[in-house]
Design a protein around this nucleic acid. Structure first.
Length: 895
RNA sequence: GGGCGAUUGGCGCAGUUGGUGGCGCAGGUCCCUUACAAGGACAAGGUCGGCGGUUCGAGUCCGUCAUCGCCCACCA
């Protein structure tokens, strides 16, 4: 067997392995019993990998690799999302740089440009995901604009249209004048901004009690052009006399009524609210209730429309200034207050959104949400961590109809056709030029496209053959788990549940795993504008994919946010370092080195069953069996952080620090049989550990496994570790041996005491020491059986054991778990220091003992506590009593 | 305004059904012991944000306050 290189280089090994795995077809659906399909939350085609993806994909790949090894039919379905607004914005920008306007070239040409763009950049994120080692079915990539997918989207629209779930209506929508499209409430972002509250005076048509004008307060004076009413609070007695009167709206000379409405808060502003039904959601509602006209003063670019004289043609900001100036010049401007308020912004281009009255398409959600609530309440769909259930349910219960039309070109065009001649309208699966009703040739399709979430809501089933090949879905839908970020629980998760229930009559996934948001080191959100984002590619290039993946999993706790400890160059935004990822790389190296050591000592090795020949073997195999059970359970419960942290501690602190060290004796000086058995044990332990580690660190484990011979677990049953079997907790259960673990602990304590004494007296690790241990006969027998271990690891020359051991001359002592350990340090004993140390230990033990005694002396405790707890306390008390006695005796001895 | 999360040694974090607290890093001492100094051994460091309550017993459950963060809603 070829010797493993001294150093492991992830930058070479990782890309190589990706190629080998893919060539061997390991990424495609694995055959197995039971199905665990996962669909990737489709990243935007415009995107590059960010830390959120890295976390998301690490979790999914860890689960996928685990499922595959467990023997489930496993497939991770890849795809990207066309991301309507995001893509259109980018293509627009690119064309603009080339001096081309979208409107000049028209819809067809623009869409071509989008497809070109997609072909050029869409592969970036896919290749980055590949670099991470994600075992995705790359040979079958889906895109939300693919022909099949588009058909599924169209069918959903057409069916819902015919089932009466889709309707058209005039609504106030959040309009982005820059993107020229409606933005859903969920896509809008609020920012607090400093603004003003302008008091404007509107003259009353007839004076009321000698008052000639009323004063309204507004943050948006420009919208006064569209005012059609004035509202006051019904709970405002001072204003009652104005109700029913009218004011003459300045500039436009429109007579508008004053009325009362519950929307108005008497305490805010002046108590008079200008009502602009076409430009404010609340005003719209009031307008409906009081039958006010809706006057739209802006066009789609938020420019004032015809009919407003000097104001026509101005944009929002110009108009605001001009209106304020006009009021000022006419003596109608009152107070101007500073006012902080939140303003909606487009989540893509950050423009201020304009509430705008327009014709839009909607999905009526009332019929959909009931079942979607039910399946979560009854546990068919389970959130992990469970607290997200409430987020989902709250959102669902407050759900309003969903505005699905977007005034974009890039996306799924709404398949509704109208006939200009006879007024016919229908949603169709096939395009048509001819009216099926009157035969006319003036048929037009809707210009708008669908909200991107409308198409991504079908993701679990439209990627799997629906609607034309339902047979492909059989056994693979519902999918096992959806792994995603919390901010799209409403946007995406909830809608997937609704549409899947409607069209497939089943849930889309059994589990929803919501991972923590990754924040920058200082706790702020990573964002492009701040330049504080960490690029996963930088992490992988510096530390390797395994290290990044492992670190990400260890970050997972019950927290909803995690701070990522990377230092970023302020100017270039390049990664300087990430200490925790570096630590994770240290673990990769540790795995490599431990394996290399074993591999270097395999001369004469023949595969064979592991066997507990020595106490340390029994201990190790028992611990291993428990680790297999724990790792399996953690992964099944989506406790990925525990899985990663526990397996690391096990590998490092137990396998490396103790077991391998303990095997060195037999390996280097043992008999041929001893050597062979210890080789078998080591290869086996390593093999199992590598299998447990593989899901999170696929590369280094595969590289090492490749270099190691078959263990007794099963003949290297597969070409690759990634398709080898997950260790079966049941099969290993036979190794569980609590007695062995206890006995080993006892010996380990003696060694620790010797080491501590050595450190205290600055004795070289090389000098062998004489040690005596006084204990009960049972423990003495246990220690006797581990004499070899204690002597070799503790560097002990003479080891005296027994119940009646005398304290040797020139020794210092320690008490640990009933054992009294005496270490001979010759003439070096520092009596004063030892006395002081013992005093401290006695005080500590007595304090503990007092606590326990007090508890046991409490009648309430003895009466009410669980028997096993009392039993435990009694044992503690006995042990502490013994400890105090022993320590006191030792102190007396010293004097 | 509503909801959620966080507050534990210098820093970053664990702590599952209540039984007096762990890990990693940094810092300290010692060791380049032939897998690994990207390592090993050892030691030190905390009245678990404040107050109140339930309980024999609270980091853990309840209430309340404070600070920080996130989400949702609203803000003429």
């Amino acid at each position: 067997m070829e010797e493993m290189p001294k150093n492991y280089d992830p930058q070479v090994a990782e890309p190589e392995l990706v190629e080998r795995w893919m060539e061997a077809g390991c990424y495609q659906r694995s055959k197995g019993v039971g199905d665990r399909t996962i669909v990737i939350p489709p990243p935007n085609v415009t995107g590059v990998l960010h830390m959120g993806h890295a976390m998301d994909d690490t979790i999914q790949d860890t689960l996928t690799r685990y499922y595959r090894m467990r023997g489930f039919s496993t497939r991770w379905i890849l795809g990207t999302d066309h991301a309507g607004i995001a893509t259109q914005t980018k293509v627009d920008k690119k064309l603009k740089e080339e001096g081309i306007s979208r409107l000049e070239i028209g819809r067809e040409k623009f869409l071509e440009a989008c497809w070109d763009w997609r072909r050029e950049y869409g592969g970036t994120i896919v290749s980055q995901i590949k670099r991470m080692g994600c075992s995705i079915d790359f040979e079958d990539e889906r895109f939300t604009m693919d022909e099949d997918y588009a058909k599924a989207v169209r069918k959903v629209f057409v069916d819902w249209y015919h089932d009466g779930l889709i309707y058209r209506g005039k609504r106030i929508v959040n309009w982005c004048p820059s993107c020229c499209t409606a933005i859903s409430d969920d896509e809008a972002e609020y920012h607090d901004e400093k603004g003003h509250l302008w008091h404007l005076r509107y003259p009353l048509t007839e004076p009321v009690d000698g008052i000639e004008y009323i004063e309204v307060a507004t943050t948006r004076p420009e919208t006064m052009l569209g005012d059609t009413g004035i509202a006051v609070s019904p709970q405002d007695p001072d204003k009652a006399k104005f109700v029913g009167k009218t004011v003459m709206l300045p500039i436009v000379d429109r007579e508008i009524p004053i009325f009362s409405d519950w929307h108005v808060d008497a305490g805010f502003g002046t108590g008079f609210v200008k009502v602009t039904p076409a430009h404010d959601p609340n005003d719209y509602a009031m307008g409906q209730a009081h039958d006010l006209p809706q006057i739209n003063i802006f066009d789609e670019h938020a420019v004032v429309v015809e009919g407003y004289g000097e104001f026509t043609g101005m944009d929002r900001d110009e108009c605001r200034e001009a209106v304020v100036k006009w009021f000022e010049e006419h003596g109608l401007l009152g107070e101007v207050e500073e006012h902080q308020h939140s303003v909606m912004h487009c989540y893509r281009c950050d423009s201020t959104l304009e509430p705008w009255l327009s014709e839009q398409w909607f999905v009526a959600v009332d019929k959909l949400k009931e079942r979607a609530i039910e399946v979560v309440k009854n546990g068919d769909v389970t959130f992990h961590p469970a607290r997200w259930t409430d987020t989902y349910l709250t959102w669902m219960e407050n759900l309003k109809d969903w505005c699905i039309s977007r005034q974009l070109w890039w996306g799924h065009r709404i398949p509704v056709f109208h006939c200009e001649d006879c007024g016919w309208e229908d949603a169709l699966m096939e395009d048509t030029d001819v009216c099926p009703h009157c035969g006319g040739h003036h048929v037009h399709q809707e210009e708008d496209v669908l909200d991107t979430w409308f198409s991504s809501q079908l993701w679990t089933f439209a990627t799997q053959g629906w609607p034309d090949h339902p047979e492909q879905m059989v056994g693979h839908h519902p999918t096992k788990v959806l792994v995603t970020a919390r901010d799209i629980i409403a946007l995406w998760v909830a809608r997937m549940v609704m549409s899947s229930l409607y069209f497939c009559d089943e849930i889309p996934f059994e589990d929803v795993y919501i991972y923590a948001t990754i924040l920058a080191k200082d706790g702020s959100r990573m964002s492009k504008s701040k330049g504080n984002g960490v690029d996963p590619m930088d992490l992988m290039n510096k530390y390797g994919a395994d290290a990044m993946r492992f670190n990400l999993l260890t970050l997972i706790t019950n927290n909803q946010d995690v701070k990522f400890d990377a230092n970023i160059d302020k100017k270039t935004h390049a990664l300087i370092d990430s200490p925790r990822t570096e630590q994770a790389r240290g673990f990769v190296t540790k795995i490599w080195n431990a394996s290399r050591f074993v591999q270097m000592n395999l001369e004469g090795y023949e595969p064979g069953a592991p066997k507990a020949e020595t106490p340390e073997d029994a201990w190790m195999l028992s611990r291993l069996a428990k680790m297999v059970a724990a790792a399996t359970e953690a992964l099944e419960k989506y406790q990925l952080g525990d899985y990663a942290r526990d397996i690391q501690a096990f590998f490092w602190n137990e396998i490396c620090d103790w077991y391998i060290e303990l095997c060195k004796g037999r390996l280097l000086d043992g008999t041929a049989e001893e050597r062979l058995q210890v080789q078998r044990n080591l290869v086996y332990v390593l093999d199992v550990a590598l299998r447990l580690l593989h899901p999170v660190m696929p590369f280094v484990t595969e590289s090492v496994w490749d270099a190691l011979p078959a263990s007794g677990l099963d003949a290297h049953d597969a070409k690759f570790l990634m398709v080898a079997n997950w260790p079966d907790p049941e099969e290993l259960a036979g190794f569980v041996n609590d007695k062995a673990e206890h006995d080993f602990e006892l010996a380990r304590r003696v060694v620790s005491v010797v080491r501590a004494t050595r450190a205290r007296y600055r004795l070289s690790p090389k000098t062998e020491l004489d040690v005596a241990v006084r204990s009960n006969a049972e423990d003495a027998a246990v220690l006797e059986s581990q004499r070899g271990f204690i002597c070799s690891v503790g560097r002990v020359d003479q080891l005296a054991l027994g119940a009646n051991q005398e304290k040797p001359l020139g020794s210092v002592s320690a008490v640990d778990g009933g054992l009294e350990v005496f270490v001979v340090v010759g003439g070096l004993v520092d009596l004063a220091a030892e006395a002081k140390r013992l005093e401290k230990e006695i005080a500590k033990a007595e304090k503990e003992l007092n606590g326990v005694t007090r508890t046991l002396g409490n009648p309430g405790f003895v009466a009410k506590a669980a028997p096993e707890v009392i039993e435990k306390k009694r044992a503690q008390q006995a042990e502490l009593e013994q400890r105090v006695a022993q320590l006191k005796a030792q102190a007396a001895d010293l004097a």
